[in-house]
Nucleic acid binder design. Structure first.
Lengths: 229, 229
DNA sequence: CCGGATCCGGTTAGATACTG
DNA sequence: CAGTATCTAACCGGATCCGG
């Protein structure tokens, strides 16, 4: 029968007990976007340790919110949302929209995180039209100390976009010099890539075809355009 | 400008950061039901320590989710929901309905809590028609050890219903002998007071007029009747 | 009484390393 | 790939105390 509620009569207190532990709703959100494997979730949620992920998955399974299955023989486990979890989807979506409307503007311009931003930009990058051959884009944040300044995205036809913070050793097709706050606001939707380029806060240099492509590939955070924005 | 988000780009992660700390959404829920004063919230949320309440109120104020105001001169502070908080109301309501639908049934019959149940029953009691004079109802859970067995509710016209677990020294008008699980299910909506009385799991003895009244006063948890039940 | 602040022991979470 | 193990830091719960 799974985990049971101990003497609670207020549904909000119970809901909090289930959904409040750190990362629980983030894990559910990630699964609602399609992840089913342990390491897929790890990749999808930076800063979540495997120990805690393991613990949370067990808890959520015990609550009947997700289902751990081993599909084939010799297969590794997969996690699926139950009907109860599906009915949380509109709630979690609403929370995301609420945050975008009321909290996004409170981003602290003094504590931005280039690496995490790049991670999200890569995740949202939609390389369409696909390049004919491997294409390398280098992001440069001149204001940052050497170690956090450079990021490379490698776009190869038929493969996931790769991100690294060490020189990958390929020719760079496009350089993007950017102000970190501007790139952040362009991604989050308080601004846009085009506007920041017009204002010279983001400067694209290099192959003109790649530049044209990249402007199409760059996709804002999926919550940037939602109603209430 | 209040608290600021540090380098987060996923709105769900941000929402979790704001709403996940223990009691945060319970406090908001309580305020959505009308509480505005510190001790009103304390009374409304058993098991929440004043220290943590104070901390959470400050955090929520910093996020711009509630507003601390001192209305008159020499007045004590009052807390009010901001517009951002109001837009959380449908989300919190939806969470409560979700819990009722998917989690209520997981109540552990071996770890019920009579005192907390009585606290909620009192809170939901609607003494209408009001009695002419002070009326005392004694709840008895024969299965429980002596110390947790008896509760008294004192209904006086024009006053809040009072609850105590020590003999209040008044004549008792109505005795309610009940099975704890049955009373719990009657309150939570998996059953009803009438049904449990019919099945003799809840037995009312004493003044017949008070009995008739009590059957009307007893109100189920406000979430018991919601859609999705 | 109201609105907190302080202290302390137990629980939870994060970082890192390691394993079948 | 899918987790454990271990250690430390942060957070929480409960009791107590304080000033108006």
């Amino acid at each position: 029968m799974g985990t049971r509620v101990q003497g609670q009569f207020c549904p909000i207190v119970m809901a909090a007990e289930i959904l409040s532990p750190r990362w629980s709703i983030v894990i559910l959100s990630e699964m609602m976007q399609g992840s089913t494997r342990f390491n897929e979730l790890r990749r999808g949620i930076p800063r979540l340790s495997p120990a805690l992920l393991s613990k949370r998955l067990k808890e959520l399974e015990d609550w009947g919110i997700l289902d751990r299955r081993i599909t084939g023989s010799g297969e590794t486990p997969e996690y699926f949302l139950t009907e109860a979890a599906e009915e949380l989807r509109p709630i979690i979506d609403a929370m995301a929209n609420w945050t975008h409307k009321w909290i996004d503007s409170r981003m602290d311009p003094d504590h931005l995180d280039a690496q995490l931003l790049m991670w999200h930009v890569r995740r949202n990058l939609n390389p369409d039209p696909a390049p004919k051959r491997r294409t390398v884009v280098q992001f440069i944040y001149p204001e940052l100390p050497q170690k956090e300044r450079n990021y490379w995205m490698i776009v190869e036809p038929g493969r996931d976009v790769d991100l690294c913070s060490l020189e990958p050793g390929h020719n760079v097709d496009l350089f993007i010099n950017a102000d970190l706050l501007s790139m952040t606001r362009a991604f989050m939707g308080q601004s846009s890539l085009e506007r920041e380029i017009d204002r010279d806060r983001i400067v694209l240099t290099g192959d003109i075809g790649t530049e044209r492509n990249f402007r199409k590939w760059f996709v804002q955070s999926s919550f940037a355009q939602k109603p209430g924005a």
